[in-house]
Amino acid sequence: MLLLQLLVSGIETGALYALTAAGFALIFGATRIFHFAHGATYALAGYAFVLASRLGLAWPLGGLLALAVAVGFGLFLEAAVYRPIQRHHGAFFTVFVAAFGVVIVVQSLIELSFGRAFVAISTPLTRAHEILPGLYIAQVFWVALAIAIVIFALLGSFLARARAGIGLRALSENPDLLRAFGLSARRLSALAFALGSALAVPGAVLGAATTGLSPGVGAHVMLISLAASVVGGIGSLRGAALAGLLLGVVETLVVAFLDTQWSEAAGFVVLFVFILFRPSGLFGAAVAR
């Protein structure tokens, strides 16, 4: 029963990781920008939701505010940080360092305005009830699962059918195809950032209710997203989502056998195994360029 219980919490955590990791993978896959500040987007969205609830706004309004903040931040970074760097040279490491700087700036701004302590939102949704003997499930579990399924279904059909969706997939591989379709690479890149950043919102909002937020919360989420996109196969949305789920489950299940302090490390062990033995990941088409 312990394993089942842990599996349930692992799936809850993993569903939210999957969304955030898919956001990172979407951006990376379409633009080849190593968006290390994706975790900062997550943190900002979460704190925006907390702010809204402190102001007494209803949760749908809070969710919209979080969404607006996340998308706005993603678009801002694309235009103000990544595009200027890429215009000159576009070295991978330069982008990485710049993004890391952004992460630090966002974290300190949150510290200055919200303090460095944990903040959390209290809701009856996180109260667990005994479903089966020994199995406790909170409503937030079903919420997380439902959100993840609906969003992935919508995202999948958008990428498969909509013109812009097809364009996104073509952006990195075949820019000529874009011209044929009459799509602008610049606008598509902005679209990738908007969509990818929006994917961080559900995890951030539900995270604010379940585990609470701290200014450094983005770092953990970012590392998980990174690990998930390697394990899933760099650039593969489906892979990142599946790997995000897998990492969430591994991180929780490991508690059944080891000290909890190993739970974060367990995800990185999975990462190493993939880098060493299957660098193309679960769904990667080719080994590193």
Binding site: P84, H89, A91, V102, I104, V105, Q107, S108
Partner: peptide, 21 residues
């Protein structure tokens, strides 16, 4: 002080990468 120091440090990293990589 700690947070302001981090802020300046992060800003320096980003701005430098944009203008003087």
């Amino acid at each position: 002080i700690g947070a302001v120091q981090q802020l300046i440090y992060g800003l320096a990293m980003t701005v430098l990468m944009i203008f003087r990589p």
